[in-house]
Amino acid sequence: MIRINIYLAIVIFSFNRIKCEFLRSKGCVTFQEGTTWEFDNDQAILPSVVSSELCATHCFENERCLGYTWYSFIEGSHNICILFDELRNQQSCENCVSGTGPADIPGSCEIEEENLIDYFSAASESECYQLCSQDEACRFYTWFDQSAILFKNECFTFTSCEKVSSCSDCKSGGMSCLDFTCPEYRVLNDPTRLMSHGQGNYCDSMDKNSEDYTTSPDWFGPGWYRFQLPAGGETMPDSTENLGYCGATSPGWVNGHHPSQAGEMRNETVCFKLFNDCSLGRDVSILNCGSYYLYYLLDTPACNLRYCST
């Protein structure tokens, strides 16, 4: 009976989806780099797990798992997956990605009045879980596995799951959002950092290589920084800029993309234009803190270069 109900709902939903567009992104944060939980000897440790996605799959297949941490490298070992049956005392970690497992629901969420958000193809329950996390309205999901006849590898996302029907070829769960805390940071608020400001003699380096240049008044060496007024907007430009702006000779721009989800971090390159668009570069980590971005910035490679805001 549940299969018939879902099929009819899909027909109606597909027609309505042509007329409306659902909100995406900034949903439930289910994974984050650089954080984990207190570890004890009761936690399962899995060696030779080659990716954080595979570690997440192990967590979903373990009924006791509430969260996982995958280390690309820790204490001389590579590709370590830790499964947690209790999440306590969140703390920072290096070379790590952590995520939550779902709140398991026995059966399939039934479709009721307007509780179906969307449906997708998904190769695994963990993929379905991540699809749900990307929609701010999604709180529950049902995923049908490869043995399903009618909805093989299909993921259904819901706003509510008040009624449940039994099934042998599906898994359902509720979202377990990850509480994340952004690190402490310094503020870049010098108004000359604006791309609309002209040339100057500032640079973002504690080791000045010329008496003709001055270390920026809001620069304190490598660390996490946030752009704030009166320095303009809270992001760095993501396209190449001309020389002679931002209170320096060579303004910096992000040669890549900013992370789209809260708690997500991306490693990109800040380029400085001299002889070409990216004559010199510095690695940068960009962290989405929900309402603002943080940048882990290093000293610029020369003292006519500066990090700018737009």
Results as ranks from 00 to 15, higher is better:
Lys26Asp: 14
Leu66Val: 12
Gln90Leu: 03
Glu268Gln: 14
Asp85Ile: 01
Thr215His: 03
Asn255Ser: 15
Gly233Gln: 11
Ser72Val: 03
Arg64Trp: 07
Thr215Arg: 08
Leu116Glu: 01
Ser216Thr: 11
Val49Lys: 00
Ser147Phe: 08
Ser239Arg: 15
Ser14Trp: 05
Gly232His: 07
Asn16Asp: 09
Ile82Pro: 00
Ser52Arg: 05
Asn16Phe: 09
Asp190Cys: 02
Ile82Glu: 04
Leu229Ile: 08
Gly221Lys: 04
Cys65Asp: 05
Thr192Ser: 12
Pro102Gln: 08
Cys308Trp: 01
Val29Gly: 02
Tyr295Thr: 05
Thr300Ala: 07
Thr181Ser: 14
Val11Thr: 10
Glu113Gly: 06
Trp219Tyr: 13
His257Tyr: 13
Arg139Asp: 06
Glu241Pro: 11
Gly263Val: 02
Glu162Gln: 13
Phe31Glu: 14
Glu110Asp: 13
Arg186Tyr: 11
Arg17Gly: 08
Ser52Met: 06
Leu8Gly: 08
Cys93Ala: 09
Leu83Met: 09
Gly99His: 03
Tyr202Cys: 10
Cys128Phe: 03
Pro106Glu: 12
Leu229Arg: 10
Asn189Leu: 07
Asn304Leu: 08
Met206His: 01
Glu234Arg: 13
Glu86Tyr: 10
Cys93Val: 07
Phe158Thr: 06
Asn16Pro: 00
Pro230Cys: 11
Cys308Ile: 07
Leu178Cys: 09
Asp190Gln: 07
Phe73Ser: 12
Met195Gln: 12
Thr69Ala: 14
Trp253His: 06
Gln130Asn: 09
Trp219Ile: 00
Lys208Trp: 00
Asp179Gln: 12
Asp218Lys: 04
Gln134Tyr: 10
Leu66Ser: 09
Pro222Cys: 06
Phe120Leu: 10
Cys303Thr: 15
Gln228Cys: 04
Ser260Lys: 11
Leu116His: 03
Gly223Glu: 05
Gly99Thr: 07
Pro106His: 10
Thr100Pro: 04
Val284His: 04
Ser160Phe: 05
Glu268Gly: 03
Glu241Ile: 04
Gly252Val: 06
Ala44Gly: 00
Leu150Phe: 11
Ala262Lys: 11
Thr36Asn: 06
Leu294His: 02
Ala44Lys: 14
Leu274Ala: 10
Cys55Met: 06
His78Ile: 08
Tyr295Glu: 04
Ser77Gly: 02
Glu127Pro: 02
Gly233Val: 05
Gly247Leu: 01
Asn255Ile: 01
Ser205Met: 00
Ser172Pro: 05
Glu112Pro: 01
Gly76Leu: 12
Ala231Val: 04
Phe156Gly: 03
Glu86Lys: 14
Ser176Pro: 01
Lys152Leu: 06
Asn16Val: 03
Ser121Ala: 10
Ser92Arg: 14
Glu94Phe: 11
Ile6Trp: 12
Leu150Pro: 00
Gly173Ala: 14
Ser172Cys: 10
Thr181Gln: 11
Gln43Asn: 15
Lys163Trp: 02
Ser210Ala: 15
Ser72Arg: 15
Cys203Ser: 15
Thr240Asp: 09
